[in-house]
Simulated assay, not measured.
Amino acid sequence: MWTWFHRLASPPSFYRFADRVAPWLAVAALLLLGYGLFAGLWIAPKDYQQGDAFRIIYVHVPAAALSLSLYTGMAIAGVVALIWRIKLAECAIVALAPIGASFTALALVTGMLWGKPMWGAYWVWDARLTSELVLLFLYLGVIGLDQAFLDRRAAARACALLAIVGAVNVPIVKYSVEWWNSLHQASTILKFGKPTITAEMAIPLYASLLGAYLLAGMAALRRMQNEVLLRERRAGWVRELTAV
């Protein structure tokens, strides 16, 4: 297994691996998201308190979960890039930042739309909302740093450092509703041991969540492929690839 991982760390091997896997991830993501969103938005019963307003969870929850997961992955890649100087880890940081920023922005927008009927306002300086906004700024900071350097490796090291430092915000986002008084509800929807919603509501949500993760994985592989091509454009295997 370690031999396989070591081989996968090679840019040519990774590029070919991503080329094979990404289409399958895309198909699975579309099927799961299609089912999850259709069942959640049109088939699942109304919530007894929130009515149809609760249906935004089928977009909001996957987006919010991915905003944290992608940043965590980016920070881990940053550690690997700084310590072991693995090129693919550097590519992962650059690739994940725009995807994470997109999901974070989506989580904020859907949260605001959900907050209006629940709280009477689109935005309040709540601990969860504020820390999620900080997370978006961290993603944008990584994107900005990447664009500020001509040297790709220097850019990756700067991005890695910011990603690692900013990782302190991830547990703040996650546990903000428990550490401070918050209008945002506690994280109860995804507790598998003690489900708080009916199966008719939960199954589409889990399908949407898994589909969103697969979609993000596919996007990350494709963006990493682009970054690999940019960095390895003078390598023989890239010239052979473009000549085909």
Rank of each mutant, 00 (worst) to 15 (best):
W2S: 07
T3Q: 12
T3D: 14
H6R: 13
A9W: 08
S10G: 03
P11E: 12
P12Q: 08
Y15V: 03
R16F: 08
R16K: 14
A18Q: 03
A18G: 10
A18M: 07
D19F: 05
R20F: 15
V21A: 11
V21N: 10
A22C: 06
P23C: 08
W24K: 12
L25Q: 01
A28H: 00
L31C: 08
L33N: 07
G34T: 01
Y35R: 02
G36N: 00
L37S: 01
F38P: 00
A39G: 00
A39N: 04
L41W: 09
L41E: 04
W42R: 11
I43K: 09
I43N: 04
P45L: 05
Y48N: 10
Y48S: 15
G51A: 07
G51P: 08
D52L: 15
A53H: 09
V61A: 09
A65K: 05
T72D: 05
M74W: 05
M74T: 13
I76R: 03
G78T: 03
K87H: 07
L88R: 09
L88K: 09
C91V: 02
A92I: 04
L96Y: 02
A97P: 01
A97E: 01
P98L: 03
I99F: 01
A101R: 05
F103G: 01
T104L: 03
A105T: 09
A105D: 00
A107Q: 05
A107P: 02
L108D: 02
T110Y: 03
M112D: 07
K116W: 11
G120Q: 11
W125K: 10
T130F: 13
F137L: 15
Y139A: 07
Y139W: 12
Y139G: 06
G141C: 06
G144F: 09
G144E: 05
D146I: 02
D146P: 00
Q147A: 10
F149W: 11
L161V: 12
L161T: 05
A163L: 03
A163F: 00
I164L: 12
A167T: 02
V168Y: 14
V170R: 08
P171T: 09
V173Y: 10
V177Y: 08
E178F: 05
W179A: 14
S182W: 11
H184T: 06
S187I: 11
K191H: 11
F192M: 11
F192K: 14
F192L: 14
A199E: 12
E200I: 00
E200R: 14
E200F: 04
A202M: 14
P204G: 02
L209G: 04
A212H: 08
L214Q: 08
A219Q: 12
R222I: 10
E227L: 11
E227G: 04
E227S: 07
E227M: 07
V228Q: 08
E232D: 12
R233G: 06
R234T: 10
G236A: 14
R239T: 08
